[in-house]
Amino acid sequence: MSKSICIVFNKAPYGSQAGRELLDIALMAAAFDMPITAIFTGQGVYQLINNQQPDILNIKNHSATFKALPLYDIEQILVDQNALHQFNLSQNDLLGIDELQYVSADVIKSRIANSDFVLTL
């Protein structure tokens, strides 16, 4: 069985390239059939906000690509409920991706513990 990886988004988009780069890594890892979990925690939940318009800053909108994660067989997408609550966000602020799972810190904790690699940027 190939190694499993957790890709942890913990930064808001566009202030840094972290979100876009982690997304690229996730799609590449998918090409190697690695079991992948995408985790959105802290300010990383802002990566999934629905009506992003970074073109106003002349920045490419990578958020639309998050919808492609399931097409790449990345169906384990965990969204930290506490982070949503902390930033006064709700599910309908986010991109409409059916595979989004709204989970507690403990669910994330055990997924991280049981993965071979855990990556943040």
């Binding site: 994330i108 904790k109 513990a113 049981n114």
Partner: peptide
């Protein structure tokens, strides 16, 4: 599996804490 969490930014420890087990490092 036990993980060693390497933190280089003081603000980030509190963010990671909910996921750190007592037997992690």
């Amino acid at each position: 599996m036990n993980s060693l969490y390497i933190i280089n930014n003081p603000q980030k420890l509190s963010e990671a804490l909910p996921f750190i087990g007592e037997n992690d490092g």
